[in-house]
Structure formats: structure tokens, C-alpha cells
Computed example of a mutant assay.
Amino acid sequence: MKARKLILLTLTFTLLCGSVAYADTVTQKWRVLVNKKWEEGSDGVIVDNKAYISSQVVSDKLQAIVIKDDSDKKISVFKPNVHMLTSSGSDIFAEVKQSKTAKFNTFIQVDSLKTEISALKLTIANPYGEETLIEQRKSGDSDFPDGKNDFWITMKDISYNFDSVGIYTLRFSVKPAGETSFQVVSEKTIASKS
């Protein structure tokens, strides 16, 4: 009786370990690096030699709009072409002196936007990650590009103190129609040097 139990137990463990080893060879976890940088929670999976990454990585790191539709069981990805230009008067700049207060505006060109948006905003983050809202517009505002795939906008002039040495990041975000949160679609950096 003990021999049967021992054989049955050995057989069960063999099958269990073999299943785990097989599953590990079919599904492998890989690190996903975007611009040579890896962040916690951005792992991908290889299944049958095909790579899968999370839609959050696509949205955050590749600055694409990702819309999840639970009713149709589909995920739509939209990557508009966005360019930003900062200017102070007639001078275009991407570098400032530390402790200088600069009055500037941001010109934004968007094309190939293949989904409707209900709001847009521009923020600036200091080198420590603290973000300040520069301007926000929503559908229905007179200066909002309702229903347009291609548009140019100039955000309002602001005065901003670049009080620390480091990289400041302008972020242009849009809120897809029917969604509740903004998604970053473009970033531009301004270097503050001593």
C-alpha cells in the first residue's frame, strides 16, 4: 500500500513539475526598455515567439493614445504626429539660464489625430517632477480644435521661473472623447543651466 502511494505521489510531482517547465518555455517574461530605460512594471511577455507589452507602456512611453473598449473587447491605439516649439518674442529657445524668469509661449502642431478629443492641456514639470498647469482647453471653447485631425495652436504666454539647474519638461496631453483621463502625446525639454 505504501509503495502505491509513493509511486502515485512521485508520478504526480513529475507531471506537475513537467507542466510548470513546459509553461515556462511557452511563456517567458522579458524586460521592456524604451530609449534604453526600464521602469518597474513595464515587463513584456513572449508567447509562441510573439512579444506582448502592456497598453500602459504604449500609452506612457510611446506617447500614444490608447482607448480600451470593453463592450467590443478591443484596444485602439492612435499616435498623432505632434511638434512643439517654445518662443520668447521672436526668439525660439530650448535652453535658459538658471534663476531666470522667462516669458514665453508654446506653439503646437498636431496632425494625423485619428480620434476625437474632448480636452487638451499643456503642463511644465521642473527637474524634481513637480508639474504646473500652463493652459487647458475643452470642447466647446472658442479656441478648441473640435473635430479636426490636423491643427495648430499657440498656448497663452506665461512667465515661468527656471529656478533650478536641470531639465524642465513641457507635456502636451489630450483627453479622448468619452474618456476620463488625459494621455500625454508629446514632450519637449528645456534645459536650465548655471
Rank of each mutant, 00 (worst) to 15 (best):
Lys2Pro: 04
Ile7Thr: 05
Thr10Ser: 12
Leu11Met: 03
Cys17Met: 07
Val20Leu: 14
Ala21Asp: 07
Val26Thr: 07
Thr27Ile: 14
Gln28His: 08
Arg31Tyr: 06
Val32Gln: 02
Val32Lys: 00
Val32His: 07
Asn35Glu: 09
Lys36Asn: 13
Lys37Leu: 11
Ser42Met: 08
Val45Thr: 12
Tyr52Cys: 05
Asp60Gln: 10
Gln63Trp: 04
Val66Asn: 07
Ile67Arg: 08
Asp70Arg: 13
Asp72Glu: 12
Asp72His: 03
Val77Thr: 01
Phe78Pro: 07
Pro80Arg: 02
Asn81Met: 10
Met84His: 07
Met84Asp: 00
Leu85Asp: 06
Thr86Gln: 14
Ser87Pro: 00
Gly89Cys: 10
Ser90Gly: 10
Ser90Pro: 01
Val96Gln: 04
Gln98Asn: 11
Lys100Tyr: 03
Phe104Cys: 09
Phe107Ser: 08
Gln109Leu: 08
Lys114Arg: 11
Lys114Gln: 07
Lys114Thr: 02
Thr115Tyr: 01
Ser118Thr: 12
Leu120His: 10
Lys121Asn: 15
Asn126Lys: 05
Gly129Cys: 04
Glu131Thr: 14
Thr132Ser: 12
Thr132Gln: 11
Leu133Gly: 11
Leu133Lys: 14
Leu133Glu: 15
Ile134Pro: 14
Glu135Asn: 13
Arg137Pro: 04
Lys138Arg: 12
Ser139Asn: 12
Asp141Gly: 08
Asn149Trp: 05
Ile153His: 12
Lys156Glu: 12
Asn161Leu: 14
Ser164Arg: 04
Val165Cys: 03
Val165Asp: 06
Ser173Arg: 07
Val174Pro: 00
Glu179Ala: 03
Gln183Phe: 02
Val184Asn: 10
Lys188Asp: 07
Lys188Thr: 09
Thr189Lys: 13
Ile190His: 04
